[in-house]
Write a protein that binds this DNA or RNA. Sequence first.
DNA 1: AGCACGCCGACT
DNA 2: GTCGGCGTGCTC
Length: 664
Amino acid sequence: MYIEVILPLPLNGTFTYFVPTEMESQIMIGSLVVVGFGEYNKYHRGLVLCIEQILPSTINVEKIKPILSVESSRPAIRQSQLRFWQWISNYYLCTLGNVFKTALPSSFHMKEKQSERCKIIPQPFSKLNELQKKIFDQIVENFQKKDVCLLHKNISLGEIEIYIHLIERTLKQNRQVLYLLPEIALTRQITNHLKQFFGEQLDVYHSKVNLNKRMEIWNNLLSDKQYQIILGVHSSIFLPFKNLGLIIIDEEHDSSYKQQKIAPYYHARNAAIVLATIHNSKVILGSATPSIESFYNVQIDKYSYINSNEYLKKTKPLPIISIDVKELKRKRKMKTIFSPLLIEHMKQKLKNGEQVILFQNRRGFAPCIFCKACNWTPKCHFCDINLTYHKESDRLTCHYCGRNYLLPNKCFRCGNLNLQSIGYGTEKVEEEVQVLFPGASVARMDLDTTKVKKSLKKTISNFESGQIQILIGTQIIYKGLNINKVGLIGILDVDTLMNFPDFRAYERTYQLILQMVEKVKRQRTQGELILQTSHPNHPLIKIVLQQNYKGMYDMQIEERILFKYPPFSRLIHILLYHKREELLCKVSDKYVHLLQEKLGDRVVGHDKPIVGKIKGLYIRKILLKIEVNASSIALRKILEGIHTKILKTAGLRRVIIHYDVDPI
DNA sequence: AGCACGCCGACT
DNA sequence: GTCGGCGTGCTC
Ligand SMILES: [Zn+2]
Ligand SMILES: [Zn+2]
């Protein structure tokens, strides 16, 4: 007996192995086998894709090796999952081996915590209030017509109660539920809440859950033992569900849903919607700031829509103040990075016993230092980027490769001793706060402070208990920080957020600020937001001040139409990496040429990305804009053809090629 | 991807 | 002489 297996490698196609007679009875399609691969017979786990009694004539008999053992005779995946894998591999332009590798719980990350297993007696469901009931009924009604419903959340809605009732309804129909969240840090609260009602029926699945537990969840789902609820992050879309009835995708706008590290670079929200069609399942997308894409799908009647704001009586909007720092600088009133008004409000809030959060999405002390005489700036030797000065470690650090450098005492180019810094990160904010508010207890929360074990948890609990008065942080403050006595959030530099060179920058900025607004509104304390910007009259700032989602959408959708950006096209980034820049340019030109032959003006451009070199590899980026209704299989064939052509060309073997479909 | 083999320049 | 970077072939 011979079998074709998928191996967890970025190689196209399957590999043929021989099955010794004594193992034949254990082999089924979907079984897991252990095989030796390559000259050293490296052990790999393989998935049986098909079984043959006779050897296919295309392969040399002598090459064929026997399998070493059967790891799992029972199929490890369901038939429907294979179709899903195939879709992922075609759409996200990767091999089935890539999908196989990410889909199965791997024993790679061995550092795990013990999962606590406490018996909980399920409580009766709490009753929905009038509004929640209304929305629940509306969702159920919408599901009759459309499979996907976008729920535009509002803080006073209490959507979790609605979700709980929808879950219960689905379980009653003997169908499974997948509840997706963008980040592990957000699962804890929801777990605790859901456990109260669903007890053992709920399982949590993500990479911090220990491997045994993950295997147990996988096997339980395979053996039809119970109908259950899975709460998890992106990877849980690969679990062997038998019969999904509902997928809840909460915070659907969050870009963490997009896998960035290894192929397949899938978007879990979009993939989950495809998974839902395979299962004939319903989908709820929840967000207070829906993504442009999802809201557009509402406009074209693909998704149904419920705006909870329409059901609620108008509450007083949270005060947001914008401060014109350009004007203040001109009048020389910006003595620090804080405007006088911000300082005034901070003093007031602290006097009231309230807390203050200062947001600056940049860690370190200064993002760039330069020579006053000749403008020289220290750069990373391996990356094309300025080094960030970190005062605490007194080093220059590259944020792309992590290398540290000693601080130069003079300019390397002209020897001048006068080195200055421009811009500011959280460390500098912290320092200035300590000068301005000498008595206050101040903490900083960024990648550098949270790298230390348990320090994130400690800072969070110290802040929540009120011991910390002023918290300075990067985006990390979104991770599981509950606030209840915050009187003021100051966004110190809205301009860098807005001016980020990406067509989604305005959408992101809006979402980031309005998510803060939602956080502040959730608490009893009346809070406010202060935005420091140089463009107080910018349309986006005005829209943010009005807290006008539709305004943001209208403004953005116009731009998307004009420049044919998503949702009016599909973007694909082809990223080329190589050590030598000249060679890379040549490949890039050739690649573009070959692409243009087949795809014409869908090849929009190729250039150096903002950071043109990372970890010693130069980078070129080719941008494709593809029609939304184009066949991904046809496209895959074209790209595959060009890919092999390039790699077969003499001298270009070592070029690394990555496809990023629907890049974020 | 990851490994071995073989080629060529450069360094003790 | 030999070490190491780099191109190439190959994995059932
Ligand atoms: Zn200089
Ligand atoms: Zn670097």
